[in-house]
Design a protein around this nucleic acid. Sequence first.
DNA 1: GTTGGGAGAATTTTT
DNA 2: TTCTCCCAAC
Length: 644
Amino acid sequence: MTDFSAVLNAEQCAAATAGGGPLLVLAAAGTGKTRTLVYRVAYLVEQGVPPNEILLLTFTNRAAREMMERAKEVAGPEVGYTLSGTFHHVCNRFLRRFAERLGYRHDFTILDRDDSLSLINTCAGELGLKYKGFPKKEVIASFIGKAANRAATVEDILKEYESELLVEAKDILRVTDLYVERKKAEGMMDFDDLLVNGLRLLCEHEDVRTLYQRRFRHVLVDEYQDTNLLQAKMVDILAGHHHNVMVVGDDMQCIYTWRGADFRNIREFPARWSGCRIIKLEQNYRSVPEVLAVANACVRGVPEAFKKQLRATRQPRNQPRVLMLRDGNDQAQAIIRLVRRYLEDGYSLSDMAVLYRAHFHSIELQMDLARTRLPYVITSGTGVFEQAHVKDVLAFLRLCEGPRDYTAFKRLMGMLSGVGEKTAESLWVKLNGSFESRNPQVRQALSAALRPAARGQWQGVDRLFAEYHAEGLGTKGAEAIERFYEAFYRSYLYRAYENPEKREEDIHEVAVQIGTVKGGVPAFLQEVALLTNIDHEYEQMEKNNEPTLHLSTVHQAKGLEWKIVFVIWLAEGMFPSSRSLGEAESDEEERRLFYVAVTRAKDELVLCAPEIRRMRDGGVFFCKPSRFIKEIPRELVRESYGLR
DNA sequence: GTTGGGAGAATTTTT
DNA sequence: TTCTCCCAAC
């Protein structure tokens, strides 16, 4: 039995060992929120709660995995049977079991962002709505997303934007309606559908609702301030029987309102759950007091529902630096110099991170790092599993497992020379809308329908389908991928893409990944759309264990910490982003985002503000230092100008 | 119907 | 500068 009072402070311990009933834990940055949740899970298991009756909802899969590993260390391996993961992940689990209730097949496919964007494009094209001035697919996707995450209709959302719309709302609705219809017809769900349908399942099917309500004796939620209406409702329902619901969050760190997050969820939690206890974690173990002083200064005036005092526990050290620089190149140089100096001081590269508002802010730095041969990892915009060449390979596997996967079919056929969208479509019609890859006659029919040049290329793949089923390669996904690569894909890769060597590596990497999944290819395919680059990277870093400098957006750095943190491009228009200027609410959100960035730092914080932006076309653009820097009282920082 | 070239647009944050 | 889309030539 663990002595919780020995390893946790009084507040953490009270939260971790609380009895049943609703509980709101307000955990300011760096106060041991994760630690508290980890020990909460361990405590429950030690108290005799069966792990599979605990539900732990997190914001990323990585957070879930980290917490589970640590909880296992405390309370033993059986903790691993806890159901944990993101809302999307958990909904996926529910839906794989009960999708039929909603008129889907249990092997529905999940559309990632790219898939849904191109489907929107197709819909708009078919309706002849692609004239100049018609909203781009990204814009339409944002309408659809906003509607889903706020439990509204697209029509409602369009009304809000009425004044900005240049085209008839009716036309946009025709596209979104067709999009919904197509998804349904092909049995596909996008990310939003997972949440919407997960919730529908609970609301509309009493037996399913009762099943899960009774099963989950304890529901724990991390990062509760970033939940949207659907997610909050889902939590309320799931905890509706046992009432043992513990949510952890900090309204000052709400940075996803643009995605539908609504901090009213956290503010009104005590009102929704009568008898709710509130515990505040206010002792900060992460940052030196000088960093906390800057953090507190930047969010002064931002409304906060629950007043929290961040109490420093660490010894004073150095004040944060503010570097005023000429441009992005100087900024990159300054960072590299400082990194070197910190290395001389005995820090490791993996103790350091560079954070920024948007991915493209890091380009100059990336180039300079590569030139100076400092190893770095970047949590890039597109995940490993979203890249075209990886999706190509997965299309083959999808078709091995699911005969009705039209998307995969189109993708795979499109790799044959002389075959494009139209040909693929007519082939699909000839096959009556399914490709049963284990049936030799069906395969024969497809081969026969191909034109000679394509048929030659197809032979290797055709044979591979036979081998896949005969040798049960579904349980040996890595081998299936390698064979597909050898038999067919390599030649396509070198023809179709630039930098094929780099892409080749990715494919071998995916083969390795697939080998680590229990349940082989089918299980992997059901989850792959929900795996993000962060999850992947985490494993990669563990594997080769080489210290690397970390580059990340502030959003993706949430929940992480480093000894030394650089925040770059603190210039008006960059951070805060010009896209968000003008609206009062987003000023506050940018501020909270800056607060999150600052509070990632343990020992040293470096804030960089270049004054010239060089545009792609060679033009220059002067920008003022960010308001977030200007507002910091000067006595709290060490300020310096230029490269020194 | 497919493919590649050339013109044109333009830079958030993500499950 | 880089990506995306459109159109014209196979």
